[in-house]
Design a protein around this nucleic acid. Sequence first.
RNA 1: UGAGUAAGCCAGACAGCUGCAUGUACAGUGCCGAAAGGCCGUACAUGAGGAAAGUCCGGGCUCCAUAGGGCAGGGUGCCGGGUAACUCCCGGUGAAGGUGACUUUAAGGAAAGUGCAACAGAGAUAUACCGCCGGUUUUACCGGUAAGGGUGGAAAGGUGAGGUAAGAGCUCACCAGCGGCAUGGCGACUUGCCGGCUAUGUAAACCCCACCUGGAGCAACACCGCAAAGAGGGACAUUUUGGUGGCCCGCCAGUCCCGGGUAGGUGGCUUGAGCUUUGCAGAAAUGCAUAGCCUAGAUAGAUGGCUGUCAAAUACAGAACCCGGCUUACAGGCUUACUCAUAAA
RNA 2: GGCCCAUUGGUCAAGCGGCCUAAGACUCCGCCCUCUCACGGCGGCAACAGGGGUUCGAAUCCCCUAUGGGUCA
Length: 117
Amino acid sequence: MTNTVPLKKNYEFSRVYKNGRFSASKHLVVYVLDNKLQTNRLGITVSKKLGKAVTRNRIRRLIRENYRLMEGMVKRGYDLVIVSRKVDVIPSFYDIKKEMNYLLRKLDMINTEVGNQ
RNA sequence: UGAGUAAGCCAGACAGCUGCAUGUACAGUGCCGAAAGGCCGUACAUGAGGAAAGUCCGGGCUCCAUAGGGCAGGGUGCCGGGUAACUCCCGGUGAAGGUGACUUUAAGGAAAGUGCAACAGAGAUAUACCGCCGGUUUUACCGGUAAGGGUGGAAAGGUGAGGUAAGAGCUCACCAGCGGCAUGGCGACUUGCCGGCUAUGUAAACCCCACCUGGAGCAACACCGCAAAGAGGGACAUUUUGGUGGCCCGCCAGUCCCGGGUAGGUGGCUUGAGCUUUGCAGAAAUGCAUAGCCUAGAUAGAUGGCUGUCAAAUACAGAACCCGGCUUACAGGCUUACUCAUAAA
RNA sequence: GGCCCAUUGGUCAAGCGGCCUAAGACUCCGCCCUCUCACGGCGGCAACAGGGGUUCGAAUCCCCUAUGGGUCA
C-alpha cells in the first residue's frame, strides 16, 4: 500500500463520520472525505459486537487485502473509513471485493482512466 | 468383538503466485537531516496457542522506606514430600461411589464461648400427647417409665439376651462412638488390649487454634522533547500538610492545593525458574550433571489472499512485560497400559 | 492490557438462611364506574442469569460460567 497510510486517531475518525460522504451495502459502509494531502488515509472499523478476536481479525484482513488489490484505481487525496456491519456469517473474499468495487464507484472514487486499462 | 477406565500426542500438509512485521546483508552518491541517523529498494531468515481465553491463585520485575511494629481485614486448613512460590503437583491415610480397572473428596476444632434450628411435634437440648405399670377419694387424678405409636433432617447410641410391677447401659455379648496403654509407621493413621457408660446438627454462622499475608500495578516505572510551570489566589508553620494505601505508631520531605494546560518519542521488550538429547538419584512430582540450540516482539497493533492435489478438514480459538498452575471452550484422529462381559483355543 | 462492580416479572426495583407459593410501583388483560374516553375501584397473568456445592432447608453462603457496565494513559 504505497500511497496509503493508516488513519489512527479517534478525532480523525469522528471528522470523517461527521463531514464525509458515505454509502452502504449489505456487509460494508464506506465513508469518504477530502483530506487535501498527496496520499490516502485508510481506517478500518470492526466492532466488538461482530465477534471475538479471530472473527474480527479475519474481516479486517479481508477488507485490507481487497483495498490493497484495488488501490491503484482509487483516487488520491481522501480519507476513507470502511466499517463492517453486523452479519451472521463471515463474508467471503469475493463478496467483499464485489461490494467494495460497487461502493467506491458509487462514491465516484475510481479513477476512470486507470480503471479502464 | 463389545462396553469402559487411566495416561499421553497431533491440532491440516505440500506446491505456485502475491502481500505484511522484525532482524541481517547489500546497493543507489535517491529523499530528509548540521551530524548521528532515518525513509525508500532488493535478497535471505524467522514469525501465535493447547488453551494465547477467563483473570481464579502464586511468583519475577518496577515504584512507594531498605518493607518496619501493632490492630483490623483477607487467605489456607488430614499427613509426608516437591517447588522460586502457591488455592498447584506427586505419593499416602480416612470417608463416599463403582462388579471392576478406577474415580471423587474446603477432610482441623461442636468437651472455650455465643448464635440459629422455620413448619410439624407432648417435647429441639429438654420433655411426657397416646400408651405401659402401680396406687387411689374410680371414669379422672397422682407416681414410675422411655420398650412401642406418631412428628421431624435430627428425639439421649444400634441389634440380641437377661432383668423388671412396667421399663431403662440397669447387666452381658457384638458393633459404633469417647478416653488410656501398647504395637507398626517420620506422620495422618492402623491393629490389639483395657476402662468408664454417653457426647443433637450447623464453623462455605460468629468464633477458637495453627500457618501465611504491606500496597499498587508495564496505562508500573525511567529518560528525552514540546508545552506548561516559575505569574496569580488560597492553606499550613512541626500537636500541621503531604508521601500513605483500612486505622494507629514509625519513617521521609519542606512545601502542598486550586486555577490553567496536557493528540509526541525512546527504553522497559524478550536469554528465560528457557527448549531439546542422553545419563544418574527417586515409588512419583522433581532434582543434578552433560551436550546442543536461540525460537514473535507489534504499538490502530504484523502470519493474510487466491489457485491446485490429498476421501474430508472454517473444531475451539489470535501474543501485547514475563513465567508456574487452575478453570473454561474444542471437529476429527492416533498411541500405550488396564478392567468387565461374551466367544474360541 | 490491568483493576473493580452488578445481574430478581415487559420496566423500575425491596428482600435477617425457614414467616417467600418473593413486597411494592408502572405496564398488560378482564370486570365495574361513565353516553364514551381518561381518572378511579376490584381481580388476574408474569421473575430470583445458568450450572455445581455446603446445609434438614439457598434469591440469600461458597466455587465455576455467561452477560452487562464502570474506571486507569
